[in-house]
Simulated assay, not measured.
Amino acid sequence: MPTPRPAAVALAAFLCLTAGCSGTTGSDVAGAAENSTDAASQGTYPVTLRNCGTDQSFDHAPSRVVVMNGASVAEVSTLLALGQGDRIVSNQQTYGMSEVPGRARKIADLPTGGVKPNEAFDIPREAMIGLRPDFVLSTTSYGFDAKNGFATREQLKEIGARTYVSPEGCGQDNLNMTIDDSYTLLRDMGKVFGVAEKAEKLVATERQNIAAVAAKVRNAKKPKVMVIFSNMTMGGNDFSSVAAHGIYNDILAEAGGSNAFASASKSSFADLSKEKVAATDVDALVVVSYNDPDPTAYAKKLLKEFPQWPAAKKNTFVVLSDSMYLGPSNDVAVEKIARMLHPDAF
């Protein structure tokens, strides 16, 4: 994502705190749910969630929902997958692309509430209060930090708004995030909006799809994969947006691969020199796009830059976006990567 450095740093802060099958995919089910206009009127209330050390109680489904940016689409995609898009009064999340047909357009069509984002590309305190939300979702606790000009959870509580920080977003890094956290987000939102049964069906379908792919590649050799965010600067070196830990590695493992740079950093992302990247054998490349107009061109440029890589010699790469993050579509990433790494297994 070509952005001025301050903007890239702000997005990096969020990111560092936060991912053809023959059967039905979890994203097929999610896509069907996104087209649904069912009201969440059959839920069991009250519902209480323990979230980042605070209890958030609901006696009915929220109707004025605000989704903060957080360099994510996990939250808005989860709400759409559960058929709750009509409850959103302001959405700040967008990637411009999605592995789920129609999702990017549905996200783009959601209201923004006329908010003018701050330097961190998110909703400043005064604008948030003016939206009169009854539920606010943030990818990380950063989104409720007064030092960054945001409304705090306490301030939002005073105006009657409940708040939610997505799984693994309470701490300082998401290096322990797994696909199970995507399921937790789905289940939590299912409870909040009274559609727990729909959430469980989505989770069950996604689990089944991932298990089916994993079974096909379980005994295969695990190629070394580089996962990199295209055209994004997150540090001081030439390659500062290389994923090292977190949900990315869980997805790679299920797809029959391994992270070529897992040992290069103790945090979620590695900030690497060109020399370090050149000296590492990369069997395959996963380029993750965040509002990049041409991530495929970025992938091809990278392979040309390192012709010694096995990935370059065999032109082995795949471009993904929202399925590689926390969210309701990790099964899509698992299958696409597995087909790239082990085509003979399908």
Results as ranks from 00 to 15, higher is better:
Gln308Ser: 08
Met340Trp: 02
Leu202Ala: 05
Pro46Gln: 12
Thr78Lys: 09
Arg125Asp: 15
Pro310Leu: 14
Thr112Lys: 00
Thr48Ser: 10
Ala71Tyr: 14
Glu126Arg: 09
Val73Lys: 06
Asn315Lys: 06
Ala40Cys: 15
Phe346Lys: 10
Val282Glu: 01
Pro46Trp: 11
Gly160Gln: 14
Tyr95Ser: 03
Leu185Phe: 00
Gly149Gln: 00
Val332Gly: 06
Met97Val: 09
Glu75Lys: 13
Arg162Glu: 15
Gly114Ile: 05
Leu341Ser: 01
Leu326Glu: 00
Val318Ile: 15
Val136Gly: 06
Leu302Tyr: 03
Phe144Glu: 13
Asn249Gly: 05
Tyr183Glu: 08
Ser230His: 06
Met177Tyr: 00
Cys52His: 10
Leu11His: 07
Thr44Pro: 05
Lys201Pro: 01
Cys16Thr: 12
Val73Trp: 10
Glu275Arg: 02
His245Leu: 01
Glu275Met: 04
Lys336Asn: 07
Val227Thr: 00
Val213Leu: 06
Glu99Arg: 00
Gly257Phe: 00
Pro295Ala: 07
Met128Phe: 09
Ser166Arg: 12
Ala311Leu: 08
Gly114Glu: 03
Gly96Asp: 06
Glu206Pro: 13
Gly149Cys: 08
Glu99Thr: 02
Gly23Met: 12
Ser230Ala: 15
Asp271Thr: 00
Asn176Gln: 13
Asp281Val: 01
Ala30Phe: 05
Leu17Arg: 13
Tyr298Pro: 00
Pro343Ala: 11
Ala212Phe: 10
Asn35Met: 10
Ser90Gln: 07
Thr18Ile: 14
Asp181Gln: 15
Ser90Asp: 11
Pro117Tyr: 08
Ser268Arg: 04
Val67Pro: 06
Leu82Gly: 02
Leu137His: 07
Met189Lys: 09
Met226His: 03
Gly43Asn: 11
Asp271Arg: 01
Val319Thr: 03
Lys116Asp: 10
Gly160Phe: 15
Lys222Tyr: 02
Gly256Asn: 10
Met340Phe: 03
Ser241Glu: 04
Ser77Leu: 13
Gly327Arg: 14
Ala214Thr: 13
Leu303Gln: 06
Asp122Asn: 12
Ser27Leu: 09
Val195Tyr: 04
Lys224Asn: 01
Val73Gln: 02
Lys147Ile: 13
Leu79Gly: 10
Ala312Asn: 00
Lys304Ser: 04
Thr3Met: 13
Phe346Ala: 12
Leu175Val: 10
Ala262Tyr: 02
Val115Tyr: 11
Pro293Tyr: 02
Val47Tyr: 07
Ser240Glu: 04
Pro328Glu: 04
Glu305Ile: 02
Val203Arg: 06
Gly194Phe: 14
Leu175Thr: 09
Asn231Val: 03
Ala297Arg: 12
Lys198Ala: 15
Ser63Glu: 05
Leu82Tyr: 11
Ile123Arg: 08
Ser90Asn: 08
Val334Gly: 01
Met97Glu: 10
Thr178Cys: 08
Ala61Asn: 07
Asp322Arg: 07
Leu303Phe: 05
Asn118Leu: 13
Pro4Leu: 15
Ala264Val: 01
Cys21Ser: 12
Arg5Ile: 15
Ile107His: 05
